[in-house]
Amino acid sequence: MAKLRGTGMAAVNYPTGMNLGGDPSQALVHATTSGSFVVTLSATDLGQGLRTVIGQIAAETLGVAYDQVVVDTADTDTGPHDMGTFASRATHRVGNAVIAAAVEARKALLDVAAEEFEASVDEIELDGHGNLMVRGVPARSMPVAEVASMAQFKYGRTIAGRGSFMKPRSEVDPETGAMDPDSTEAHACTVAEVEVDTETGEVTVLSIRSAYEVGRQVNPALVQGQITGGAWMGMSHALYETTAPYYPAPDHSPRDFSEYLMPGPLELPEIDCVVLEMPSSNGPYGVKGIGEMTANSPIPAIVNAIYHATGVRIDSLPVTPEKILRGLDARRP
């Protein structure tokens, strides 16, 4: 009986957007008289940090500081239509809609400033720190807040923008499967290291190390969060989780967390990653998507590592100690 170590790898792609498209998102952006901007949506934050990244994208496009932007979601009486948060679509779809809305709002802001400065619109610029100025003439500068207030009280105008994004729906050819399913694809490659106890069949995952290519990271800490959480979830799917422990028999399905197994903090492997950015052509600032894919490559990487360690190839999930022990038994002469 021994503890055997092995290494396995896997490389995957993951598509962005509701399959086949036809999944629109809208956004509205308007300035308050105090010069902050409100982004109004009906998209949902599942915890991935959508509110935060959408605020960042809006601030970037408007040319104002991040803390000048408030993201208001989700209320169907105020927020325009959104298909929902799934299919790794939210940052891509909502981000594109917000850019369109912010471009329009920015234009309205610059128009007012141009009028006030008696300059042409293309001479006006935002410094990203809350000021508008005539290019090259720092003396002719005014805080965004002042221009926003002037728009309302002096010029009687709104500073607002509307944005929508939709990848047109593709139909599938029923004979050949020809279709245009996604907007772009992100990629990942994971290397897992495991130790298998041949006495008990238990697997300890020692490390999960991955490279991801996600187009553009709007917020690297949040991308890292998806990768770390996904690595854990992938490990959990690979080794622990099932609602039918004797699948296909339906018996003994778990009712609560004491019966539904998942690894805890004591089972954590070392998790490490690098993130490449090769901007997509159609995502906001080149974004692809990272929400769903992070649990995918760890699963086969772990299963391949178990094979490398023991010579037992397991083809069914989850890989329980029982399956490993049976596999080891089958290999004995």
Partner: peptide
Amino acid sequence: DEAIGQALAGNLCRCTGYRPIV
């Protein structure tokens, strides 16, 4: 880390993979 892991054993997180909590 061992003591932290022991302490957290009864508290589940489905999202983070625990590492950021530790």
